[in-house]
Each structure stands twice: as C-alpha cells, then as structure tokens.
C-alpha cells in the first residue's frame, strides 16, 4: 500500500497529464461521431454571450451586402406572388386545419466556421424558440445544415461542410438521388456520392434537396454540377457540386421545422418493427 502511494506521489505530474489528456482525447473522439450529446459545444450562455456582443459589432460591416441579399430575395418572392394564379380573396381559410407543412424561424448566425474538417455554426435561437435537434437550416440561396445541439437561447448547426454530414439530394432535371458529403478540402464545393450510372449528368445542372429525409422539403437548391467522375466499380458517379451559398459569408438563416416529422418517423418506426 505504501508503495502504491509512493508511486502516485512520485509520478503525480505524469498521472495528471495522462488523466487530462485522456479526457481531452475522449471529447475529441466523441466529437468525431455523429449526433452524440456533447458537453463541449458553443451553444451555451458564456460563448453565446461573447459571440452575441461580437456579432452586434460585426454586422454593421455587412449591412450593404445583407441589404442586397434581402432585396434580391424580395424580388424573387414578389415574382412568385404576382405569377401565382391561386386566388384566395373570396375563400375562407380555416387556419386550425391548415395544410402548412413547415414552420420557418429566422435566426442570426453568431459563429461560422469553415476551415476545420468538422464545421459548426452557432445561431441565436434555441429551446426558448422551440428549436430542436434535426431541424433544417437554409438561406435564401440554399441549404446550410442541420441543427445539432440546442441550449435555452442558442443552437449549433452541423454544417454541410462537416465530414459527419450526410444529406439526401437529387438532380433537378431527373429524380436520381445521391448522398451529399464533404471531403474537407474547399468550402465552395461538396460532393454528391452514389448517383446511379443511368443518371444523365450535365455540367452546370442544378442539384437540390431530395425530400426523402423528413428534415428538408423537396427542391431547396444546393449547387450546380462542376465536374463528375465514375466510381471504380463503374455503377455510380461521384459529382463535384459547386455550392450556391457562399459558406464563408452567412448572416441570416431560416430554420425549418417539419410539422409532420413525428408522424413520418412514427410510421417508419412501426414499419420497421
């Protein structure tokens, strides 16, 4: 017994180092696996507060570009409004039984990262705004990612620029689907893998969300085809997709809640059983 104590006292620095290093290593390994509840994330009051102060200063420098983006989006929405032939003026709409499928929340990006291999964003909306895990996040240009962790006032987003991210996507011209990944090289490009060899791929075609997942609605833009190559097996193509969004410059985002998600998941679970 005496010897054990002596050993511990003699090597106390090394043992403490080993302990701390293992804790750090465990947290690192945990951060490399998808959707595990993480202790160390930037959705908390301390980091949120600091990033909030920073954001309130920083946003003044981007006011002009933000205005341009909003004007562009307004134009788009007005076009849709004027060109839609649905006349709702005389019909009474009972909002209790609305056929609305998605609830949209607007949020500010407090922290954005795109240089690491696993990137996360921090938003200024959280549980208090009924934001939960697995809600989709988009901008007017296209998709950003999926809500990962939430605290009362903040939420972190698993960016599409993250090696853990897998999003269902399809070609706009046909319905050939693939899964959207990131290779960690450039923040302007993502990869669409496992596209069937029968898909007619043309450089410049649009890639959009597939609507197979219960997170994003069908038809949200992702990017355009930059180049593609056939996989070694010859059955599938891998497509290099140039993103519509400039992931290095994101100000305001929309959080999408699929109101039917629970129903879909319950149905799928009961089918699997």
């Amino acid at each position: 017994m005496q010897q054990i104590f002596n050993f511990v006292i003699r090597n106390k620095t090394f043992l403490l180092f080993l302990l701390l290093f293992s804790i750090a290593l465990a947290l690192t390994i945990q951060s490399h696996s998808y959707h595990r509840s993480k202790f160390i994330n930037s959705a908390n009051a301390l980091t949120g507060g600091v990033y909030g102060t920073m954001n309130s200063v920083d946003q003044y420098f981007n006011l002009k570009t933000k205005n341009d983006i909003l004007a562009e989006e307004n134009k788009l929405l007005r076009e849709q409004l004027f060109n839609s032939n649905a006349s709702t003026d005389s019909t009474f709409i009972d909002t209790t039984y609305s056929t609305r499928k998605y609830k949209v929340t607007i949020a500010e990006v407090y922290k954005n990262s795109y240089t690491a291999t696993n990137n996360y964003l921090t938003l200024n909306k959280g549980k208090n705004d009924s934001i939960k895990r697995d809600f989709g996040v988009i901008t007017s240009n296209g998709i950003i990612g999926i809500i990962d962790n939430t605290s009362n006032k903040y939420a972190t987003v698993l960016s599409i620029l993250n090696k853990l991210s897998r999003i269902n996507a399809k070609l706009k011209s046909t319905n050939h689907i693939g899964s959207l990944k990131w290779d960690g090289v450039s923040p302007a490009y993502v990869q669409l893998a496992d596209v069937s060899q029968f898909a007619p791929i043309k450089i410049g075609d649009t890639i959009e969300t597939g609507g197979e997942s219960s997170i994003f609605p069908k038809g949200i833009g992702i990017g355009t085809i930059d180049s593609f190559k056939t996989d070694i097996g010859g059955d599938t193509h891998s497509i290099q997709v140039k993103l519509f969004n400039d992931m290095t410059n994101i100000g305001t985002v929309y959080i999408l809640e699929n109101l039917d998600r629970n129903e879909i998941l319950n149905l799928e679970n009961s089918t699997n059983e």
Partner: peptide
C-alpha cells in the same frame, strides 16, 4: 468550447 472542436485544443 468556443470553436466546437471537441477536446482538440485541450
């Protein structure tokens, strides 16, 4: 904590 990187810096 600030950069969402697990325990890399630690």
């Amino acid at each position: 904590l600030f950069s969402d990187s697990g325990g890399v810096h630690a």
